[in-house]
C-alpha cells in the first residue's frame, strides 16, 4: 500500500506547497491537495496536513474561521477515526480552534512577528511524528509567526507534561509560550500541532539559511510509522 497524504489549502494558506513538496520528498508519492470548501476528504488517508499561512486573513482569531470551514468537519471526523493529523503554524492554530488540541495560541509576548531559526528540544521520541529523533536531542527549525504564544491553564499544562504530550519545547526563550511549549500531541498521540516549520527544513545540504534538514525527520517519522503499521 502506498502512503496517501492530503494537504488542505485554506484561503490565505502559504505553506501548503512546501508541505506537499516535503511529503513527496520523503515518500516519493505526490500528496493529494484538498480545498477548504470541500466537504469530503479523499478516502484511505494516512495523513492530513494543515499548513502554515494566514487562513482567512486571521480574521477574528488566527485559525478561528478555518476551523469552521467545511473541510474541517471532515478533518475532525477523520481525526476521531484515528487518521493522523499534522498542523504546522497556522495549522496548529486551526487545530486548537477546532478543539482537536487543547490550549490556544496568543499574540507573541514581545508583540513582534518572529521569523528566525530556533533550537528545539524533543519532548517525546515515541510518537508517530517524532520517532526518528533521539532522546535528549536538540534540533533547529525555522519559526515565522505572530501568534505562537502557547497558552493553556495550569491543570492542562500539567496533564500534557504528565502524559508525554509536549512533543517539542523551545530550548531558548521564543514567544512567551507557557513552559516553552512549541508543539503538542492529542491524547491518542495521533494529532500533532507545532509552531515551527518542519517542511521548511527538509533538504540535506541546503544552505543553513534555508532551514537545514532537521524537519525532514519529522516527516520521515510519519512514514516510518506508516510502514510499520
Amino acid at each position: 500500500m502506498s502512503f496517501r497524504a492530503a494537504v488542505v489549502t485554506f484561503p490565505g494558506s502559504n505553506c501548503d506547497r512546501d508541505m506537499a513538496v516535503g511529503l513527496e520528498a520523503v515518500s516519493g508519492i505526490s500528496a493529494l491537495r484538498v480545498w477548504h470548501g470541500d466537504a469530503e476528504l479523499p478516502d484511505r488517508l494516512d495523513l492530513i496536513a494543515l499548513p502554515g499561512g494566514f487562513s482567512y486573513g486571521d480574521y477574528l482569531r488566527s485559525g478561528a474561521m478555518a476551523a469552521t470551514s467545511p473541510i474541517m468537519r471532515a478533518v475532525v471526523a477523520a481525526a476521531e477515526r484515528g487518521v493522523p493529523v499534522l498542523g504546522v503554524c497556522n495549522g496548529f492554530q486551526v487545530l486548537t480552534e477546532a478543539r482537536l488540541l487543547p490550549g490556544a495560541l496568543l499574540r507573541n509576548a514581545g508583540q513582534r512577528f518572529i521569523c528566525r531559526t530556533v533550537t528545539l528540544a524533543i519532548g517525546n521520541t515515541n510518537s508517530l511524528f517524532t520517532n526518528s529523533y533521539a532522546e535528549g536531542e536538540t534540533i533547529r527549525l525555522p519559526v515565522a509567526h505572530h501568534d505562537g504564544n502557547y497558552y493553556a491553564d495550569a491543570d492542562t499544562l500539567d496533564r500534557l507534561e504528565g502524559e508525554g504530550r509536549v512533543a517539542f519545547r523551545y530550548a531558548e526563550s521564543c514567544n512567551g509560550s507557557a513552559r516553552d511549549i512549541a508543539g503538542v500531541l492529542s491524547a491518542n498521540g495521533r494529532v500533532l500541532g507545532l509552531m515551527p516549520h518542519p517542511e521548511r527544513a527538509i533538504e540535506p545540504g541546503a544552505v543553513p539559511a534555508l532551514g537545514g534538514a532537521d524537519g525532514r525527520r519529522l516527516l520521515e517519522s510519519i512514514l516510518a510509522s506508516f510502514a510499520s503499521a
Partner: peptide
C-alpha cells in the same frame, strides 16, 4: 462556538 474562544 465562534465569537469567543472560551479557552482564553
Amino acid at each position: 462556538k465562534l465569537l469567543a474562544n472560551t479557552v482564553i
